[in-house]
Write a protein that binds this DNA or RNA. Structure first.
Length: 719
DNA sequence: AGCACGCCGACT
DNA sequence: GTCGGCGTGCTC
């Protein structure tokens, strides 16, 4: 009896295609095969097999490819992910199928594109946009570049042919040795021992556990014990981290516990090395992988534990291509593999907190700091009472605190979550405000780069000499502070001190930034001025004072998660203060000391924050968690106004169960030439959100021409 | 992802 | 006229 194979192809296709299985070829579900597709040959995965009547006119499968098949759980994960995120199944498959195809092995799997310096022979509007984005000389993926410039891929391809852009491969590193679970280690505290025991789930009852512990409580050591137990049992472990936290520092910590560094997996790993890790994972040789979110799709045959470190981090959200939340998919994969999942954080996300409260996740708490370290003493500087001098941004108590700390020979950190020199530039002569031409945001002055930059889309222009509106000279006024401006003020206040400014746009790139972080960690700097970069992933063992310069930033962004995000960020950054057994101090400049977020931070009562926030969301009729679906209305400039109107009409009548955070409360913005709205959809009543919204869109008023409306799911907790 | 097809403005 | 650039739709 002839067979038909349903083959899923890793392209943006939502259904598997049917092929005939030639006589003599024996296939199983999960096998990786080669199939004809249009004029060419492609890889695909057997998603289903069926007996078929003879005489079909299907094209035949070309053959089986000799790589490990996709396991049943991994295939189910792909199905789940595609369904949950509204992505085509093929796109979801693509993430699990980074194949060792010959081309990739010979060259490199990941190809970056960058500007060559020679201008395109013919400069069109679309081409100019692309070249403007590529002008910084940075490496980007083809699609990423096209998207960022707001043009289609063929423009980028055209520029490569033209010689204005070039493709570059990325280099490999060595692979991992087996970790030793019984490597000699520092003994754990009693609380840690107890937590480590609690992490091991009862036999036959995996599920997820929230491991919550304040900064410095030793969460890592605790889940390392879970990893050790997993390795001893001959199974594999995966530790997921936000990309930024995947540092040499962490890998060394792992090495201190297990004798060797783990296999590291992140977007920078390409070519042969990527394939060697994949193969090592598939064969079971690699026991532990530490990786960024894409490691979730590695073909582990014997997965025994998944750890999601810093589970609240928004970096777990994939924002391009298939939108997924790696933390949630980790829980799904754990369920499908029958293995436990540990979610670790000092400041868990609301949804994980709620899941723990409702008993969906177990909850293990590490109540205190390890080794007798105490939490920092946090105080507010009420900016209504203690005003900085005119044109200054450090309040007198803050200046005093830094002064005292310096006198004691200690290191201080001033935290301001704003890059650049000033967040707004205006002309004093005519009042013109510099705004991004693609987005509805102000341009931020970057004095070092002598440019005005859009923090939304990356658009940049040279800072003009005269006002572009009225032509007046010397009337451009910076409004408000960014870290560069704080650095200026601090340098005037403390001219003798060693000052460093740390932000993601650090001049000189990632390499120099890493060196600078090292210097700070070794104490070779007196005052650090930094953006949120300093709150995440890096330890500063010499820090004893943290000054938060504007704690209120981010409280009024209209984002439903504003309070949560701000609390997490401030908790993390103030938690950096403290050195050895000496408790640190934190001073927080705020205009709203009574705001629930600030009050909870000051009292050190995280419990209270979570309770209040969950209650506040309930009172507002919002679910404590849910998926945010952004309704993206893409339109070119000409049609933007019409699209705007149509989209407004549409969101005015949402289907029942879908709550629209309308223009007043939620981001309604022109971003990269696309109007963007957000819908907050309740998910707890068991409605099929995807089908629901799809149906709603299908029935809504038709939009014409170039205007396109799509749902773009921002995945949150899946339960 | 590739590739063909068709539309549209530029040009020997 | 046609040619190159660019968006769109199709591939079992």
């Amino acid at each position: 009896m002839p067979q038909t194979a349903e083959i899923l192809i890793p392209l943006a296709l939502d259904t598997a295609y049917s092929y005939a299985v030639p006589a003599g070829l024996s296939l199983a579900e999960g096998d990786v095969v080669q199939v004809p597709l249009g004029p060419r040959e492609t890889v695909g995965v057997v998603w289903g097999l069926a007996e078929s009547a003879s005489g079909s006119n299907l094209r035949p499968v070309t053959g089986r490819i000799d790589v490990p098949p996709l396991s049943e759980p991994l295939r189910r994960l792909v199905d789940w992910l595609a369904r949950y995120t509204l992505a085509p199944k093929g796109s979801a498959l693509a993430m699990a199928l980074r194949l060792p195809d010959e081309a990739a092995a010979r060259e490199s799997l990941r190809v970056g594109v960058r500007a060559t310096g020679s201008p395109p022979a013919r400069a069109t509007a679309a081409r100019t946009k692309v070249m403007a984005v590529a002008a910084d000389g940075g490496l980007r993926g083809k699609t990423a570049l096209a998207k960022e410039a707001g043009v289609s891929l063929s423009v980028v391809d055209g520029l490569i042919d033209d010689g204005a852009l070039e493709t570059v491969a990325l280099e490999p590193e060595p692979v991992a040795l087996p970790p030793d679970p019984d490597h000699p280690r520092v003994p754990l505290s009693e609380a840690q021992e107890e937590a480590a025991r609690a992490l091991l789930p009862p036999e036959g009852d995996p599920g997820a556990t929230l491991l919550e512990g304040v900064t410095g409580s030793g969460k890592t050591e605790v889940y390392f014990e879970g990893v050790a137990a997993c390795v001893r049992a001959g199974r594999q472990a995966l530790i997921l981290m936000p990309e930024i936290a995947l540092t040499a520092q962490f890998l060394d910590r792992f090495a201190a516990r297990f004798g060797v560094r783990p296999a590291a997996w992140h977007s920078g790993i390409g070519g042969k090395r990527r394939e060697r890790i994949r193969a090592g994972v598939a064969s079971g040789e690699i026991a532990v992988v530490v990786g960024a979110r894409s490691a979730l799709f590695l073909p582990f045959p014997r997965l025994g534990l998944i750890v999601v470190d810093e589970e609240h981090e928004s970096a777990y959200k994939q924002e391009d291509g298939v939108h997924y939340h790696a933390r949630d998919m980790a829980v799904v994969r754990g369920k499908l593999e029958g293995c436990p999942v540990v979610l670790a954080s000092a400041t868990p996300s609301i949804e994980t907190r709620v899941n723990a409260q409702k008993g969906r996740y177990r909850h293990v708490v590490l109540p205190e700091r390890f080794g007798g370290r105490r939490l920092p003493d946090i105080r507010a500087v009420d900016m209504r009472l203690d005003k900085p001098e005119r044109g200054r941004f450090l309040a007198p108590p803050m200046v005093d605190a830094v002064k005292h700390n310096l006198a004691a020979g200690e290191q201080s950190l001033l935290f301001l979550n704003r890059r650049g020199y000033a967040p707004l530039t205006l002309c004093r002569a005519c009042g013109h405000r510099y705004q991004c031409r693609n987005c509805s945001t102000w341009l931020v002055e970057h004095r070092f780069r002598r440019a005005l930059v859009c923090h939304q889309c990356g658009y940049a222009e040279r800072k003009p000499e005269a006002c572009v509106e009225c032509g007046a000279f010397d009337h451009l006024t910076p409004c408000g502070p960014g870290v560069e401006r704080i650095a200026e003020e601090v340098a005037e206040l403390f001219p003798e001190q060693r000052i460093v400014v740390l932000s993601s746009d650090f001049p000189g790139g990632a390499e120099r930034l890493r060196a600078e972080l090292q210097t700070v960690a070794e104490g070779g700097c007196d005052i650090v001025i930094g953006t949120q970069l300093v709150a995440k992933g890096h330890n500063f063992p010499h820090l004893t004072l943290v000054g938060v310069l504007d704690a209120d930033i981010g409280l009024t962004t209209g984002d439903p998660r504003a309070a949560e995000r701000t609390f997490q960020l401030l908790q993390q950054v103030t938690g950096r203060a403290g050195r050895g057994e000496r408790p640190g101090r934190a001073l927080v400049q705020t205009y709203q000391p009574d705001h629930p977020v600030i009050a909870a931070l000051l009292s050190g009562d995280a419990e209270r924050f979570y309770d209040e926030e969950i209650a506040a969301r309930e009172a507002a009729g919002l679910p404590p968690f849910g998926r945010l679906a952004a309704l993206i209305v893409s339109a070119n400039e000409r049609e933007a106004a019409e699209a705007h109107g149509q989209a407004l009409a549409r969101v005015a009548e949402p289907p029942p169960g879908v709550m629209v955070l309308g223009p007043a409360e939620a981001p309604l913005a022109l971003i990269r030439g696309r109007w963007r709205f957000r819908l907050l959809a309740k998910t707890e009543r068991g409605i099929d959100l995807q089908a629901y919204l799809r149906d709603w869109l299908a029935r809504g008023p038709k939009v014409r021409g170039n205007v396109k409306v799509a749902i773009d799911v921002d995945p949150q907790s899946f339960l």
